[in-house]
């Protein structure tokens, strides 16, 4: 019920900022969710924090302008103000109001650029995950764990099991340990895709012939869903991402089984950049 009310009165929702962080189990959006999905990584936590600052600033500006417009409409319509004024400019006013937006921009720019740097800095990396985009599935490889790799393909609607979310479920989810600094390498075997997981604050293009780098650290165990976010052809809407975050111990166990399961496999072989170069 609370959630319904906030939809009706967006302004009161401001007070929900704090709560938004832990209200839901997370990993995907919920009915009547108001804001971003809850953060599951340090970067996303900071993004939400910064977004909240922006939101307050921007709502104030819009309110101010709207209020001013309403005042003008009521006060200076042809009936209320039959004799228009003759002023053409006012230097003091002009200087002040060039200054004010500049100040506001500074207030925005400093934390923004700080966070940009934080999100990009890759430190104390403990493991690497390589993500390859293909039309229309993902290939994940674990170069630091023996280099096994596997494809992750959407499960069609009619094969979904009880409780599996539609258009988000894949056959092989990508399993990762929590509280580990993970380096992410992105590339593509064909067109540009984009590996995006909202609750982890990640969204980066995968481009053939290029490797993009990023990092993440998952705070809590859980299932985190994402979708391809760069138009990549007809089935762009059908290559979801499912990150399963587990404890470090469980991860080690999983690696052992996965190594065997995916040994030599890899399905329709994803392109290796070196190979194509030699062609």
């Amino acid at each position: 019920m609370m959630q319904r009310l906030t939809i009706l009165a967006p302004m009161t929702a401001l007070s929900f900022f704090g709560a938004a962080g832990n209200a839901f189990a997370g990993g995907r959006s919920e009915p009547w969710q108001m804001w971003f999905q809850p953060a599951a990584s340090p970067v996303m936590e900071r993004i939400i924090e910064f977004h909240n600052l922006l939101f307050v600033i921007e709502v104030s500006i819009v309110t101010l302008v709207l209020g001013l417009m309403c005042y003008i409409i009521v006060r200076f319509n042809a009936k209320a103000n039959p004799v228009p004024t003759k002023t053409t400019h006012n230097t003091l006013l002009e200087v002040v109001w060039t200054g004010v937006p500049l100040l506001i921009l500074m207030v925005i720019a400093v934390p923004s650029l700080n966070l940009l740097y934080y999100a990009d800095r890759i430190e104390n990396i403990e493991m690497t995950l390589k993500v390859t985009g293909n039309q229309w599935f993902w290939t994940y490889s674990y170069p630091d764990h023996g280099g096994f790799e596997f494809d992750s393909v959407i499960v069609p609607d009619d094969e979904l099991k009880e409780g599996q979310p539609r258009l988000l479920t894949v056959d092989n989810e990508v399993v990762l340990p929590v509280e580990t600094n993970i380096r992410l390498l992105f590339t593509s075997s064909d067109v540009i895709h984009n590996w995006a997981v909202p609750s982890l604050g990640l969204k980066l293009d995968t481009v053939a012939g290029r490797i993009n780098e990023n990092w993440m650290r998952i705070n809590k165990e859980g299932d985190y869903y994402g979708m391809c976010s760069e138009l990549c052809g007809i089935n762009h809407g059908f290559m979801p991402i499912h990150v399963k975050a587990v404890s470090k111990a469980d991860f080690a166990e999983w690696v052992e089984t996965a190594r065997k399961e995916f040994a030599g496999a890899g399905g329709p072989a994803p392109v290796r950049v070196a190979e194509t170069g030699a062609r």
Binding site: S29, F36, R166, L168, Y225, H236, G237
Partner: peptide, 17 residues
């Protein structure tokens, strides 16, 4: 909510509750 653009036939997914 994270609903992507340029998506065909989303209907009800959990991205679009």
């Amino acid at each position: 909510l994270g609903v992507p653009r340029r998506y065909f036939e989303m209907g009800e997914t959990n991205f679009i509750p």
